[in-house]
Design a protein around this nucleic acid. Sequence first.
DNA 1: TACCATTGCGCAATCC
DNA 2: TGGATTGCGCAATGGT
Lengths: 116, 116
Amino acid sequence: MTVSDMAPKRGKPRKEMDSEEDGDEYRKKRDRNNMAVKRSRQKSKIKTAETMHRVNTLKSENTILQEKVKTLTKELGFLKELFLAHAGNSADKSKFEDVDLQQLLGEDTPSSDAMK
Amino acid sequence: MTVSDMAPKRGKPRKEMDSEEDGDEYRKKRDRNNMAVKRSRQKSKIKTAETMHRVNTLKSENTILQEKVKTLTKELGFLKELFLAHAGNSADKSKFEDVDLQQLLGEDTPSSDAMK
DNA sequence: TACCATTGCGCAATCC
DNA sequence: TGGATTGCGCAATGGT
């Protein structure tokens, strides 16, 4: 079985293609290409491994960040409840910007107990 | 150039290896293997593409989560400052659990303006 | 034109 | 027994 027996090729069954006279030149060329192929494949494997590692790293970071968001959200909810509870008898909170405060209290905070 | 010319082989230069008598059986086996190889490589390519996509998805999620953490941290810092400002003249905050509150106020909050 | 890198493909060994 | 993987070489092709 010869590799050259493969169908999808041009009319070049035997002998030199362009220059190479079947001998050492051809062999050298093949050897160099084989080395190049090895380098290329090695490189590709490393890249694949790095990608896999990247996925794992990102998954970990993601998990940590999600936990952090959950914790912060819970804390924020707690503090907001505290504020709302004081909303009635507060007359001195005017030291701070009321607008931003109100906006803050209305934001993304599902009354703390909504979290597990 | 014959594939069989490769050096790292056993002393089996020609003729049947085990059973195959060089003919149709061998050819059928080769063809089936070639198909299997194609399937395997196709599968591997798909897996690689999926992994790449996974990396991009995770990177996006990560960015969003980091922004969320930053926002929440900033808000928390703001509310905590508000609390601390009231710390002096507060006598009615006793409605809530003081311990947890104190703990909360001391946590992970770099006085809001520490953020860009 | 020469050269290295990539890639599709087949073979054979090996894994399962 | 047989498909799935994998290492390897060949040749075509892409990119300088």
